[in-house]
Design a binder for these strands. Structure first.
Length: 576
RNA sequence: CGGGAUGUGGCUCAGCCUGGUAGAGCACUGCGUUCGGGACGCAGGGGUCGGAGGUUCAAAUCCUCUCAUCCCGACCA
């Protein structure tokens, strides 16, 4: 492509709307433009990167035996009502009516549609397994879209669905997708982790997220520094180490209420009693579909709401406002404690080992001192309810856990029979028995993968595209357009590179050299070829890799070494 | 939905407090010079100051409402 003819509007200044690096660079590099909050157009340069990721995704999905389909983006409400997600999915589902006042939605995901398709086609175990995928535009009406392509409302997703005869077979499908995803993200040049994750609204019973490590990521993951354990912070556990409790301490002192005016937070209470937060039992009220409950954890720990939800078996969970807690339960937030409450109490597994502790008195302005587990309170379910911290022991091997931030680019789920039961997708097995298909679903945020790649591969001057997804593999900078011999050579080289299948952005613009260098860096094209009058006279062309600080010179009369450089880059890239 | 902020040529912003002829830089058009890290000179074109209403002799500026966007939180493949 000739730069002079390409619609590639690079920006010197960062548009005010962009905060995170990938968003800024994608705007500056002329890859995307915003239409509305969370809704973006892809410009030619951005689309080339997107297509490159898609190509890798297709290759690896096909290699894993999946077949591409294209399902409708607009879906009838009936299907969603049948799966009972029409109500459950909430406001994120973009709903609308057609001219006949029939309800439709713009698909945020396609479990319903694919299951409907398959239940009408597949009757026999002989037709299974099946794995179908598509690359398509999704719409989720996110509460807060942000960070450009990172969390858009309209976005391009690869979603795939597998159908198997039983759980063992479904596990094989899942494993094969896990391998395919590992290959995909490796080929995209990303530093990522596959981590255990919560299944969320999709449902099902087992899932892994593929998280690209980046400080700007919205997700936190815990991973072991020794073994291969890694989990989303929502799901992450640590090995529990029992500590001995000093039995004598505090036994003689019965619990007593102390006036603690204006001490509502753990820090304030700790300061008041001149103790560590670890000596305070932190009590919080949660409201779920099963009713209210109280959760008690050590004062220095954060409650992990996903663990609370799992421990209760609840579908949803939220923290009620202090006003609501007062109205419904008559309890004063800030002075809560587990003694004498008439709602279920969940106790973190560490609480019984806290020894003598302080907790709220359930009375405005008072805390209780000298509280002991087993003596003053003991009711309640005991579970692991807190968020893991860096340095805690790995649940598998006991080595230290580390916490990293990252961007979720892919998520795979074992769905089991959740959707096949709801939508009655069955087949006859070998014995003539009717059975529900066992499903899995597998998503990749394609645009988000591009953004994550930029987030992970950039410097002060701009993007440093991994070779595999670079919109152009080479940038050819003609610094002396007016020199006929330089231009003639550039034209020849440009054509030769194209003939060799190397995509080139030929900068033939009537611009000063500085502009061309700046743009080449900003655009992050892996190989930069620079030819000017001086170099031409010396018979050399300058070759610089975007991710290297040094350049090398190649003889103009023998370009074989240059072509082998591209061969090598290409080979490294497809080595996975 | 709660909290914070911002809307002024294509982009980045000043002007607003203290009402009185809409500005700068970049970008764009033409001419000339320049030409290996975002050049310079001269001459140009381009703005319902997000929208509506109000106050006023007079509103980008003050008031009310509204829309949009961004950030934090809650939420979420």
């Amino acid at each position: 492509m000739r730069f002079s003819r390409m619609h590639l509007p690079t920006l010197k200044e960062v548009p005010a709307e962009a905060e995170v690096i990938s968003h800024r660079l994608m705007l500056r590099a002329g890859m995307i433009r915003r239409l509305a909050a969370g809704i973006y157009s892809y410009l030619p340069f951005g689309l080339l990167a997107l297509r490159n990721v898609e190509a890798i995704v297709r290759q690896e999905m096909n290699r894993a035996g999946a077949q591409e389909v294209l399902l409708p983006a607009v879906q009838p409400a009936e299907l969603w009502q049948e799966s009972e997600r029409w109500d459950f999915y909430g406001k994120e589902l973009l709903r609308f009516k057609d001219r006949h006042q029939r309800d439709f939605c713009f698909g945020p995901t396609h479990e319903e549609v694919i299951t409907d398709l398959i239940r009408n086609e597949v009757r026999s175990y002989r037709q299974l397994p099946l794995n179908l995928y598509q690359v398509q535009t999704k719409f989720r009406d996110e509460i807060r879209p942000r960070f450009g392509l990172m969390r858009g409302r309209e976005f391009i997703m690869k979603d795939g669905y597998s159908f198997d005869v039983d759980d063992a077979a479904a596990t094989l499908s899942y494993k094969s997708m896990r391998e395919a995803y590992t290959r995909i993200f490796s080929r995209c040049g990303l530093n990522f982790r596959a981590v255990e994750a919560d299944s969320g609204a999709i449902g099902g019973n087992f899932s892994h997220e593929f998280v690209v490590l980046a400080d700007s990521g919205e997700d936190a993951i815990a991973s072991c520094t020794e073994c291969d354990y890694a989990a989303n912070i929502e799901k992450a556990q640590s090995k529990f180490i029992e500590v001995s409790v000093l039995e004598s301490e505090g036994d003689s002192e019965p619990a007593n209420a102390v006036a603690t005016p204006d001490c509502q937070s753990i820090d304030e209470v700790a300061a008041f009693f001149k103790v560590s937060p670890t000596a305070i039992a932190k009590s919080m009220i949660f409201e779920t579909d099963l009713g209210f409950c109280m959760v008690v954890v050590p004062g220095d720990r954060e409650v992990n709401e996903f663990k609370v939800k799992a421990a209760l078996g609840a579908n949803w969970l939220e923290i009620p406002t202090p006003g609501r807690v007062a109205d419904e339960l008559g309890l004063p937030v800030g002075y809560l404690g587990p003694l004498d409450v008439d709602i279920p109490v969940l106790v973190d597994r560490q609480v019984p080992y806290m020894g003598v502790m302080i907790c709220g008195a359930n009375r405005e302005g008072y805390h209780l001192q000298g509280i002991r587990w087993g003596r003053d309170f003991s009711s309640g379910q005991i579970a692991d309810l807190v968020q893991v911290r860096a340095g805690e022991p790995c649940p598998h091997c006991g080595a230290a856990l580390q916490i990293d931030r990252g961007i979720e680019v892919g998520h795979i789920f074992k769905l089991g029979t959740k959707y096949s039961e709801k939508l009655n997708a069955t087949f006859l097995d070998q014995d003539g028995q009717e059975k529900h298909m066992v499903m899995g679903c597998y998503g990749i945020g394609v645009g988000r993968t591009v953004a994550a790649a930029i987030e992970q591969n950039h410097d002060d001057n701009g993007i440093c595209f991994p070779y595999a997804i670079a919109p152009f593999k080479a940038a050819l900078l003609n610094l002396d357009l007016k020199s006929e011999e330089v231009t003639a050579f550039c034209e020849k080289l440009y054509q030769e590179l194209l003939e060799r299948g190397i995509t080139v952005l030929y900068d033939d613009r009537n611009e000063r050299p500085g502009v061309k260098f700046k743009d080449a860096d900003l655009l992050g094209i892996p190989v930069r070829l620079t030819l000017g009058r001086k170099g031409f006279k010396r018979g050399i062309i300058e070759v610089k890799l975007r991710n290297s600080s040094t350049s090398q010179e190649f003889a103009l009369d023998d370009l074989k070494p240059l072509y082998s450089l591209f061969d090598k880059l290409q080979a490294d890239d497809s080595r996975i």
